[in-house]
Amino acid sequence: MKITLTCNTGFGTGGQGGCLANAATGLNQFADLTVLCSGEEKPQTSFPVYPLGSSQWSRRLLATPVLRRRNDLAVLLSDLYFDKQVSKYLKSQSCDLIMGVAGQTNLGFKAAKQKGAIAWLYCLNNYLPFMQQQIQQEMEFLSEPTVATMNPIMLQRFLGECEQADLIVVLSEVAKQSFIQAGFSPNQIAVLTPFVDTNRFRPTPKQDEVFRVLYVGTIEPRKGVPYLVDAFIKAEIPNSELLIVGGTSTRALRIFMENTLSKHANIKQEFWDFSRVDPTEVFGRCSVLVLPSVEDGFGLVALEAMACGLPVIVTSQCGAADVVENAVNGFVVPPRDIQAITDKLLFFANNEPTRQEMGKSARITSEKQTQEVYQQTLEQIFRNQGLLN
C-alpha cells in the first residue's frame, strides 16, 4: 500500500508539525509512506519527505502594511498553493491512501480519488465552523473585526473535503463531539490521540522558588490568552510570574501584550523553538501550564508539559481535556472563565506538596500516551476500515 500524508507546515515544527510527525511515524509502519509538507528544509527521516515550498503571494500579502491584517487571505493563499502542489504531485504518482490536513487538501483529495485512492481527512482542530464561531466571538471581544477569521472559501473547501473523506481522523474526543454535534455519524470519526517523546520532554529540578505559570503557543484569538492574563493578575500570588512563550498573530493582541508587559513586571514574553533547543530549559522553570483555549483540537503542549512533570489547567473545549483528570494531574475549567482559572492558580500556589504530587501524576499520564499505544490505535483504525486483516 502506498500512503501519502500531507500538511501545510514544517515537519516536526510546532503543534501541527508535531502531529504531522506523529502520524508519519505511525503510518510508516503499515505501508510505503511519502510525506508532503511546506517549507524548503528536508528533515532527516527513514521515509521520503518532500517540502513543497510556500506561497509567494501569501508572503507578499503579509509583508504589505495595508494588507497584512488580512491573515485569513494569507492562510487561504498559502493553503491553495500547497494544495495545488499536492494535486500536481498525485497526478503523476500512485497512491492508495491519502491522509490530508483539513482545509489544505480539497484538490489533493480529488486528484487521489480520481485514481481510486481512499481519502482520510486529518482534522487538527474541532469542526471548523465551530472553530470559526469561537474565533468570531473572540474578535468581538478584541474589537478586531476581520483579521483572524477563516476565509469563507476555506470553509467551503473544508466542507468539500468532508464530503470526499472516507474517514475523518481527529485528535480527541472533544473534537469528535464537535463533529457529532454538527450531524456527523460517530462511525465517520476516528480519534488518534497524539504522543510525545518522554525522553526529550522530562522532569528537571526547579532552581528557584518563583511560582511560575506557563503558556506556550501562538497568541491568537482562539487560544484565550487574555483570560489567563486577567486570571493571573486577579490571583495576586506573591513571588509569582506569568511566562508567555510565543508571538502574537493579530494587531489587537500585539497591542494587548505590549500594554500588559508595560504594566506588569511579573508577566514576561519569550520566544523559543523547541524543535532546536532542550524544552526543559523552559518547562523546568515553571510550576503549572495553562492552556486557556476557547477552541483547540488537542493542544500538544499540554501533554509535553505533563511529560515534564507539570500539572496543567485546560478548558473543556481543548482536546487535551481527554488526558486531564480533575485534581489528579490537573484541572479542566470552562472556556472564558477567568474566576475558575484564578481559583486553580491559587490552589496550586497555596498547596505546593499537592502541586508536586499532581505533577508526578501528570508525568505518569504522559508515559501512557506512548508511540506504542499510538501505533496500536492506528492499527485498530486500519482494521476497522478493512485495510488490515
Rank of each mutant, 00 (worst) to 15 (best):
Q356A: 09
A340Q: 09
S361Q: 14
E270M: 11
Q136F: 07
D322L: 01
L107C: 05
P292Y: 11
I3E: 06
Q371F: 14
Q376G: 05
P353R: 00
E367F: 01
T354G: 02
Q177R: 08
G14R: 05
K206D: 02
S262P: 04
A340Y: 07
I341H: 08
L159C: 08
P51Q: 00
Q317M: 15
T370I: 06
L242N: 04
C19A: 12
W57M: 11
S185N: 13
F195R: 08
E41G: 02
F47N: 05
R200Q: 15
A23R: 12
E304M: 00
V277L: 15
L27V: 00
L80A: 07
R68P: 05
Y50W: 10
C286G: 02
S249H: 15
V169T: 10
L27D: 02
I244T: 04
T193A: 10
V170A: 07
A305F: 06
T204P: 11
R60E: 14
A165G: 10
Y89K: 03
Y81Q: 08
L73F: 05
V49N: 01
T193L: 11
T204F: 11
A111P: 07
L346W: 01
G12A: 08
I3G: 03
G160E: 10
L387N: 09
L159G: 02
G10I: 00
I338Y: 12
K2R: 15
G246L: 08
P129V: 02
L27P: 00
L388R: 14
Q133A: 14
D208N: 07
K84S: 09
Y89C: 03
P335R: 11
A321G: 03
K268M: 06
G103D: 06
A24N: 02
K91V: 00
N151V: 00
T6W: 05
E241G: 03
G224K: 07
F47P: 06
G100L: 02
G17V: 02
P203V: 01
P353W: 00
G103C: 04
L5Q: 12
P335V: 06
Q164C: 07
S366F: 00
Q380N: 15
A63D: 13
S249Q: 15
Q133V: 05
N239D: 05
G39W: 11
L76N: 01
V229P: 10
V35N: 05
I180E: 14
A252F: 10
Y227G: 05
R276A: 14
T365P: 05
I135T: 11
L159P: 02
F11D: 02
S275D: 09
T149A: 15
S249F: 14
Y50E: 11
N239Y: 00
I341Q: 09
N71D: 14
L242C: 07
V323R: 08
V312D: 12
V170W: 09
V312E: 13
F232R: 03
E140A: 12
D83W: 06
F232T: 00
C318W: 00
G309K: 03
E140F: 09
N199E: 13
D273I: 01
P65S: 06
P129E: 09
V196D: 10
A165F: 09
V35K: 06
A182R: 02
I118S: 15
T34Y: 04
P194N: 03
V288H: 13
